[in-house]
């Protein structure tokens, strides 16, 4: 079992003919993901390798029954691409694009509230169910299929580091999700935690947060109230200065809110096993799970 995506997922890629889109679409196919279509306006009718390219998401969905979309368009067109995918009726939208203006995302989020689809990201590495399908830019081979660990994170390479340590400890993963480093994003920690709780194969969860906002604090309270599975937590950015945007648009301490210390305290208070040194997260997970 897994959450949100699996071997039956039929993926389309928006921006498949661009440099990034092409490279990562090929990596996904190599991993075993079933990519059924690409979309690049003006390039409909062409093919990228053996994948048919369409002008619009709607035509791609109509012809190929795609039910998920992976987005690689530039930030200026990110909001448009997400809304197009949502209107075309795909179930899962994964937006890799970094740098979408926050007021665009605010509109997208309110627009999506009327739709049934799930948005992952933007500014994220994507989602992978090891051994079944990879929808994103993460290196597939560091993952280990079969569970028992579910991973959720706001970050990219930091997630790879965590997964790599889990795999080296012999702990496989059910699904790994990067929810993205932007202040306003689609799927949040709580959505993923709930899904992991309901997934019988996920026995434990690793949650990787960072400074900025209070999503980790809310998630920690949710965990105490609703989860029976053990959670290992990590927070990046304890040495970050206030008022500075640390790479991710959402990673900023504003006044006294969003500090790493507050998040760690919230995690500890709510029964999460907090890892305070990234080099040890694999060992701690091994002990806890």
């Amino acid at each position: 079992m897994s959450i949100f995506v699996n071997k039956n997922t039929r993926l389309l890629v928006q921006g498949i003919t661009g440099r990034e889109g092409q490279f990562h679409a090929r990596q996904c196919v190599e991993y075993g993901t079933n990519i059924v279509a690409g979309v690049t306006p003006g390039k409909g009718g062409q093919k990228m390798d053996d994948i048919p390219v369409f002008n619009t998401v709607k035509s791609a969905v109509n012809s190929t029954k795609a039910n998920a979309s992976l987005i690689f368009v530039p930030p200026a067109f990110g909001a448009d691409a997400i809304m197009e995918a949502a209107d075309a009726g795909v179930d899962v939208i994964v937006a890799i694009t970094e740098g979408i203006p926050v007021l665009d995302m605010v509109k997208v989020k309110n627009f999506l509230a009327t739709k049934k689809c799930r948005l992952i990201g933007p500014n994220c590495p994507g989602i992978i169910t090891p051994g079944e399908c990879k929808i994103g830019i993460m290196p597939g081979k560091i993952h280990k299929a079969g569970g028992p660990v579910g991973v959720v994170s706001r970050s990219g390479t930091l997630t790879y580091e965590v997964v790599d340590q889990l795999t080296k400890q012999g702990l496989g993963q059910t699904t790994c999700i990067g929810i993205g480093g932007d202040p306003v994003n689609g799927t949040n920690f709580i959505d993923v935690l709930k899904a992991f709780q309901d997934d019988p194969e996920t026995k434990g969860i690793v949650m990787v947060g960072e400074i900025g906002g209070n999503a980790e604090e809310e998630a920690a309270e949710y965990i105490k109230k609703n989860l029976t599975k053990p959670v290992v937590g990590f927070i990046a950015g304890l040495t970050a200065p206030p008022g500075r945007r640390m790479g991710h648009a959402g990673a900023i301490i504003s006044g006294s809110s969003g500090t790493g210390q507050a998040k760690i305290e919230a995690m500890k208070k709510n029964g999460i096993h907090v890892c305070e040194n990234l080099g040890e997260i694999g060992e701690i997970a091994k002990k806890v799970f």
Binding site: R154, S155, G156, G181, V208, A236, T239, G247
Partner: peptide
């Protein structure tokens, strides 16, 4: 490489 890993 990567903001989260850089903070960590």
């Amino acid at each position: 490489n990567g903001a989260g890993l850089a903070m960590a």
